[in-house]
């Protein structure tokens, strides 16, 4: 294809997105659009898969049957969300195996929030309330994104996500209204998860390299700073209901902006964790890769069994 032809295709493509038309898998798309989507959707899928690990650790230690069934269902949803997203990503011409390979070799990233440890039961509350809360803020605008399979996956994810946040909040509420020790445990979890949750919404706008292009493609509909502000404004009143204190001495209602002002985020910490030096990076990858490798014989056996059954069926036909 000549450069002139590509330019004309690109113009046409950009106009379609401006008209809010969806792009579907077999449509022509710029190579950069395809690559950016593979990166973002797979990163999102990996986050769901790795996100099962900190919570999966607590299933056997859930304090009651009610909590246990909820946590099991939540972790199962996360597996499901990972699978919806991998399947959306594969429509862009990348195989599941390549995607796993990228995760397992560290080539692909996942949300750095999962590189923090879940130390107490209250962390199950804080993760649901804050981490899923921040994820929802990130994800709701994606239900309208330009790439059809991603938007459809996100609609399903968002529908299921609100149970996650509510079950987390309920855990926090119970602890916050419990014994002094329980309340202290809830406060401690909030102290540890608050700042990483704010970081989850991504670097500040002036440092975010992908924002401008992603906004054009409607792969992003609000900037990181806007999303972060929205998260803070919605979460502070919820902390008040819990009777817990947000660990930020600079947090203050700004009457003029009708929003909360907040303190400086430790971005050095964020970049350290992104680069692999968080408290749990190694542990998470070890658990994930280990599970994949230990499952090899099961996948092989299932395939061998399927082939044997198929061969038997064909023989009967003859």
């Amino acid at each position: 294809m000549s450069e002139e032809q590509i330019r004309s295709l690109e113009r046409n493509f950009n106009e379609r997105i401006e008209r809010d038309e969806k792009i579907e898998p077999k449509d022509w798309m710029p190579e950069k659009y395809r690559k950016t989507h593979i990166r973002q959707i797979s990163q999102h899928a990996h986050s769901e898969i790795v996100g099962m690990l900190p919570e999966g650790n607590w299933i056997t230690r859930a304090p009651s049957l009610r909590r246990k069934v909820a946590l099991l269902a939540k972790v199962q949803d996360e597996a499901g969300h990972g699978l919806y997203l991998y399947s959306a990503c594969e429509t862009l011409g990348v195989s599941r195996d390549e995607l796993y390979e990228q995760l397992h070799t560290g080539k692909a990233k996942y949300s750095s929030i999962f590189n923090y440890p879940a130390l107490t039961w209250a962390d199950m509350g804080a993760i649901g309330w804050l981490v899923d809360g921040a994820a929802i803020i990130n994800q709701v605008p994606l239900c309208n994104t330009s790439y059809g399979p991603y938007a459809r996956a996100m609609i399903r994810v968002c529908k299921e996500e609100s149970f996650h946040q509510r079950q987390g909040f309920e855990i926090m509420l119970k602890l916050a209204n419990g014994t002094p020790e329980q309340k202290e445990m809830a406060q401690d979890a909030l102290n540890r998860w608050w700042w990483p949750s704010l970081m989850m919404l991504g670097p500040t706008d002036d440092k975010s390299v992908h924002t401008e292009q992603s906004m054009k493609w409607k792969l992003k509909r609000k900037t990181n700073d806007e999303l972060r502000q929205q998260f803070i404004d919605q979460t502070v009143p919820q902390a008040d209901v819990l009777g817990l204190t947000i660990p930020d001495p600079d947090l203050k209602w700004n009457e003029e902006r009708q929003s909360y002002d907040f303190g400086e985020i430790d971005w050095d910490e964020f970049w350290q964790v992104v680069k692999g030096h968080g408290p749990m990076n190694k542990e998470r990858m070890k658990a994930r890769v280990g599970a994949w490798e230990r499952g090899t014989w099961v996948r092989d056996a299932a395939m061998a069994h399927a082939e044997k059954k198929q061969a038997r069926k064909e023989k009967q036909v003859v």
């Binding site: 269902a73 699978l83 919806y84 459809r152 299921e160 299932a302 069994h305 399927a306």
Partner: peptide, 23 residues
Amino acid sequence: FGSLHAADAEMALENARDVYTRR
């Protein structure tokens, strides 16, 4: 509804139930 990986049709049905019809 989407796609998934499975060794054969029977497993695809079972996985589809878990992935796409949890609610």
